[in-house]
Structure formats: structure tokens, C-alpha cells
Simulated scan of single mutants.
Amino acid sequence: MELTLVAEEMRSVLNRLRRAQGQIAGVIKMIEDGRSCDEVVTQLAAASRALDRAGFAIIATGLEHCMTEPEGEGGTPVDREQMRARLEKLFLSLA
């Protein structure tokens, strides 16, 4: 399934990914500086949530895309069961 995100959705996803990137860099520095375990885990959890939210935003956009454009490549009809299975697999990959 090819996914083209509209500009506003892409901006939101990129902001979340940049935030996660900064948080991960912060976690690395915290570990290098010998910070406490609870501080490191708290920041790591925040980065994980940011990544999850970015993934869910991409999946939601893909779902919207599938609902508005029910044809596959070359204009062939999409097998609904196959599409359902692909979307389920995407959701489970973030679970």
C-alpha cells in the first residue's frame, strides 16, 4: 500500500519523529552521564510514545487513503479481505 501524506499530516508526523529523535539523543546523554535509572526510563518511555503516535498517525492516514481510494495499483479493485489483513498487520506491528 503506497501512502502519500498530505502536507499537514506529514508536518505533524515529522514533528513527532523529531521530538522522539531529540528524546533518544537525550537518553543516550543521560546514560553517558550516569543519570538514574528512573530518569532514563521516563525519557525512553516518552520517546516510545512519540514513535507510537507517529506510527498511528501514518496508519490512520493509510486507512483514510484506503477508504477514499478503494482501487489498487493499475486501477484494479482492492480485495477487501487482503486490505483488512494488511491493516491489521500494521496495527499489530505497533502493539
Rank of each mutant, 00 (worst) to 15 (best):
M1A: 13
L94V: 09
A85L: 06
G72K: 02
L14M: 13
G75P: 02
L17C: 01
D79H: 03
C66Q: 03
A85K: 08
M10N: 09
V13H: 03
V6Q: 15
L63V: 05
D33A: 15
R11H: 15
M10K: 13
P70N: 07
R11G: 12
D79A: 05
Q82A: 14
A47Q: 04
E88L: 03
F56S: 04
L90A: 14
M1G: 12
L14I: 12
I28Q: 15
R84S: 07
S48V: 14
G74V: 02
E32K: 11
V27E: 02
S12I: 08
E81A: 07
T76R: 13
L90Y: 09
Q43P: 03
C37N: 06
Q21Y: 15
G75T: 01
G55D: 02
G34P: 08
T4R: 13
A54D: 01
L94D: 01
Q43Y: 04
T76V: 15
V13C: 05
V78G: 01
K29C: 07
A50K: 01
S12T: 08
L5F: 01
D52Q: 12
L63I: 09
D38K: 14
Q43M: 12
R84W: 01
F56V: 11
F91T: 03
D79Y: 04
R84D: 07
A25S: 14
R19D: 11
Q82W: 09
T42V: 07
G74I: 01
P77T: 07
R18T: 09
R16A: 07
G26R: 00
A95H: 08
L3I: 11
V27G: 03
M67D: 03
F56P: 02
E64L: 10
T61L: 14
L5S: 00
E32V: 02
E32G: 02
P70I: 04
V41W: 05
K89S: 14
C37G: 06
G72F: 05
R18D: 10
C37W: 10
N15F: 13
N15K: 10
L87G: 02
G55S: 02
A25N: 11
D33P: 11
D38M: 14
G22L: 02
R18P: 01
K89V: 05
Q21G: 15
E32P: 00
L5C: 00
A7C: 08
V6R: 15
C66M: 07
R53S: 11
N15D: 13
M67Q: 06
E8H: 12
M83D: 09
Q43A: 06
S48Y: 10
G62T: 08
G22D: 00
T61V: 11
C66P: 00
I28D: 14
E2K: 14
Q43T: 03
C37P: 01
R35E: 08
G55C: 07
T76D: 12
M1L: 13
S93E: 03
L17D: 00
V78S: 05
T76P: 01
E39S: 10
G22V: 04
T68H: 11
N15W: 12
T42W: 06
C66S: 08
R35K: 11
E9Y: 06
V41H: 03
R16M: 09
V78Q: 06
L90F: 08
A45F: 05
L5E: 00
F56N: 05
L51Q: 07
P77H: 03
L63T: 05
E64Q: 12
L14C: 12
E73C: 13
T76C: 10
I24Q: 01
